[in-house]
């Protein structure tokens, strides 16, 4: 029972988050906390722009979302599927069919996320386009 309640609470928080992201734009309203990494160091992290990107996706603007954080746009379908599988597994004891990811693939993904975080801070031409929203200015 406690587990069911925890799951229900998690789903409620997720649903509330989606509604808030649809209604409020993190770029202009101050109700979403800023990225702690960017706030403390001034550097963009791999996730900078992800909330703004989801806001744009919820309004159907794929181009703006891609400009804010391409990594989010790429990963979001997989994460949604994984989360749906997790919720179904908790409810009925059987998740959605999932391929077994070999360890090397997960390490490559980890490397790609870290590399994306480094590269979008570089002040060189092709890379600076990866900073949140930079592609929209061209």
């Amino acid at each position: 029972m406690a587990k069911n309640r925890l799951l229900a609470a998690m789903l409620a928080v997720c649903a509330a988050g989606v509604v808030m992201l649809r209604v409020f734009d993190p770029a202009t309203s101050g109700i979403f906390p800023p990225c702690p990494v960017h706030y403390l160091t001034g550097w963009y992290c791999p996730g900078c722009g992800s909330l703004r990107a989801i806001h744009q996706l919820l309004h159907g603007d794929l181009r703006a979302a891609w400009a804010l954080n391409p990594l989010t746009v790429v990963l979001l379908p997989f994460l949604t599927y994984g989360l749906a599988s997790f919720v179904l597994f908790e409810i009925r004891g059987q998740g959605l069919p999932q391929p077994f990811l070999r360890a090397g693939w997960i390490r490559a993904l980890c490397g790609a996320i870290i590399l994306f975080g480094i590269v979008r801070n570089l002040p060189l031409h092709p890379f600076e386009l990866l900073a949140p929203g930079a592609m929209l200015r061209f």
């Binding site: 990225c35 702690p36 990494v37 960017h38 992290c45 791999p46 996730g47 900078c48 992800s50 909330l51 989801i54 954080n69 990594l71 989010t72 990963l75 077994f100 990811l101 070999r102 360890a103 090397g104 997960i106 390490r107 993904l109 980890c110 996320i113 870290i114």
Partner: peptide
Amino acid sequence: TVFCCLPTGIPAIIYAAQVNG
């Protein structure tokens, strides 16, 4: 890592790779 902007997600990903390995 990506949606909460937290670098502490990186060790979690590395351990996830270790689980499958």
